[in-house]
């Protein structure tokens, strides 16, 4: 297996607070790699450095063989890193179809097309509809985004990330704020892409993590203390002490 995302010695601090401490991490092509850690461990800071919203003080990020440490967010997205947000981030005044079409459009060259009605472009709409089907939202394609439930917003986020035809999905707590039934549905959706799409999953929901992940990295105080298979992580003493111990 080849390494798709390679993180080496990533370091980031805000004033005196170290948010990311010498993080090294490999995400293999095709694997689901989960990052877990207690609140305040620096998961979101790490994610935002991977997708170009923030930049590290030191360290390197390579993606698909290219150094992307200094690449901007949009540039990384174009290279194939799609992310979903912890807090729902969709276009509230557009229909679900238009939301996903806007994502698909991003993958389809530049958008300096000024004349043709974008809503009546069959190819983009077909792609968008397919993505909506994959997350089970096709029945609500014509509903305005602000009129659907929280769980459906989360599914829409996944559909939008998929529509850019990414090489890797960066999922920032896709189960956040969901009930158990909704979480279960989301796990099923993500399981469909397991093996086909490389995923880096940041999640609190342990059921989801153990159901989906091929490997797990544990982040504590900005530092990765262990990376291993789910079973090994479950038995890892250091991890138990730092994190799982609270629940076990």
């Amino acid at each position: 297996m080849t390494i798709l995302l390679e993180v080496r010695g990533l370091h980031k601090s805000f004033g005196g607070v170290i948010a990311t401490k010498n993080v090294s991490l490999d995400v293999m092509e095709g694997e689901v790699h989960a990052i877990i850690g207690p609140n305040g461990a620096g998961k979101t800071t790490l994610i935002s450095q991977l997708c170009g919203e923030q930049f590290p003080d030191a360290g390197k990020v390579r993606f698909n063989g290219r150094d992307i440490t200094k690449a901007s967010g949009p540039a990384r997205a174009k290279m194939g890193i799609a992310r979903s947000f912890q807090i729902t981030t969709v276009f509230q005044d557009m229909t679900l179809l238009e939301n996903v079409a806007l994502a698909a459009q991003a993958h389809d060259g530049h958008s300096f097309h000024f004349w043709r009605n974008a809503n009546s472009e069959p190819e983009i709409n077909r792609q968008a509809m397919e993505r909506l089907k994959e997350v089970g939202l096709e029945a609500k394609a014509m509903t305005l985004s602000r009129e659907v439930s929280h769980g459906e917003h989360r599914q829409l986020e996944i559909a939008m990330a998929l529509a850019t035809e990414p090489k890797m999905l960066l999922l920032d707590e896709p189960m956040a704020g969901m009930g158990s039934e909704e979480s279960q549905r989301m796990i099923e959706i993500l399981q469909r892409f397991k093996g086909q799409k490389t995923m880096l999953l940041v999640e609190h929901d342990m059921d989801a993590v153990f159901a989906l992940a091929d490997r797990i990295s544990v982040l504590v105080y900005g530092e990765i203390i262990a990376t291993d298979t789910p079973d090994a992580i479950r038995d890892n003493e250091a991890v138990k002490r730092a994190y799982l111990g609270e629940e076990a």
Partner: peptide
């Protein structure tokens, strides 16, 4: 509507 999302999509 949502600049952050637009940039994450690659715009």
């Amino acid at each position: 509507s949502n600049e952050k999302r637009m940039q994450a999509l690659g715009y």
